[in-house]
Each structure stands twice: as structure tokens, then as C-alpha cells.
Amino acid sequence: MQISIYRFDPDENEAPRMEDVELDLPEGRDLMVLDVLELLKAKDPSIAYRRSCREGVCGSDGINMNGRNGLACITPLSEAAPRGKLTLRPLPGLPVVRDLVVDMSQFYRQYEKITPWLVNDTPPPAQERLQKPRDRDKLNGLYECILCACCTTACPSFWWNPDKFVGPAGLLQAYRFLADSRDTATAERLAALEDPFSVFRCRGIMNCVSVCPKGLNPTRAIGKIRTMLLSQGI
């Protein structure tokens, strides 16, 4: 199989390059892209990428495969490279550290900005706080985010304003806490998002939805936040 992989080591290279590799694949199995990376690394240990759980829950191996962001460990070759050639690049929109490894600091900063923890000022009861199943159901499709950054780094609005627009992953979590019946900081959370950039830079492009490896829908969550902000303003 023909593979083209993005290579860059800041100590060695002035500029990044695409390296073409020919790799013999074991027959009879539809490998995941991560399997291919591991085979490549066994041949050339200097290829750098992040990976861990290899089952799509840790969010380490978000990369760009033939132009599309996704998790290498749960993307079958047949899906990533239906026409045979596989092109691997780092996630777009973030500085490259080395090869497929990007600097995630900006992404994490946006996550930290939304106060990503439950706020409840009432003293906790001796047991759990009660929550009706229908209230708990409101967290489905939100809490499952694995912070892989596939969505945020596919978002043109984030590319333009990575410092000011929270981005789809951060906003999905912002809504996760707004939607939690146990959280008492709704007003503060909304106030922190009111400026023209944090939420309103979302242009509904929906790249986030189309790439999310967990099938989540940040655009819908952003829409809900907008509605809350607007109805609060009235």
C-alpha cells in the first residue's frame, strides 16, 4: 500500500515534508489506520504520533486521514483510503510539534475557559443528589466527548480565532454543564459566553458534526446555548 505521511522534526528540518512509503499489509483483515501506523513505526521508529487505548475512547490519536479528521484507531483503512492511497497529516489548525503530534494547548485552554466542572452552591446531601432519568438523559450526547480535538481543528471559525472562539468541543462541554439539572451556575456560565466571539463565531458550518468520531453534535449544543443567551437577553 502507498502511504504518504507528514514528517517534521523541528531540530532537523527547516520545513515539513510529505514522505512516501510503500508498506506490505497483512492480508485478510481490514486494518485500522493505527495498525498501519504501528507497522510503519516498527520499520521506522522515528515516526511520532500519539496513541493509547486503541479503541476510540482515550482521544489520543486524532489525526487527518486523506483530508478528514478522525481517530486512527477506529478508522478502517477501507474507509480512510477507499482508493488505495493513504495520506496522513497532523490535525489542522494547531501548531505541529513533530510529525503527527500537534500542540494541543490552545484547545485545552478553550476547554478550561468554560468552567468545565459542576457548580452547585448548596451543601451536598449525605447521599447522592437526586436526578430524574429524564434530566439525566439531557446529558447524553454531551458528556461522552473524549477531547480528541477532531471537531475543533476541523472548524474554520476556530482556525480564524483560536484564542477567542471556544470551538465546538469546548462549547459542547459548556452546554453539558448548562444542561445538568444539578448545576446552579447557569447565569454565570451564560455571562461568560456572551461576547461576540466565544459562541457567536460559530457559523453553522457543521464540520464538527461530520467528523466527530463519537457521533456527537456540537452544532446542536451551540444552537441551544445561543437560544439560552438570546432568551436571557430579552
Binding site: W117, L118, N120, P124, A126, Q127, E128, R129, L130, Q131, K132, P133, D135, R136, L139, Y143, F177, D180, R182, D183
Partner: peptide, 17 residues
């Protein structure tokens, strides 16, 4: 219970536990 107070989204029973 501490984990729940921290916000862990446990699945709930009809009574909310």
C-alpha cells in the same frame, strides 16, 4: 457520593438515585 457531588453523570433510577 463524593464523585456524584463532583458531577459524575451516573445513570439514574426512576426515583433519581
Amino acid at each position: 457520593y463524593e464523585l456524584e457531588h463532583m458531577g459524575l453523570p451516573f445513570t439514574r433510577t426512576e426515583s433519581g438515585r
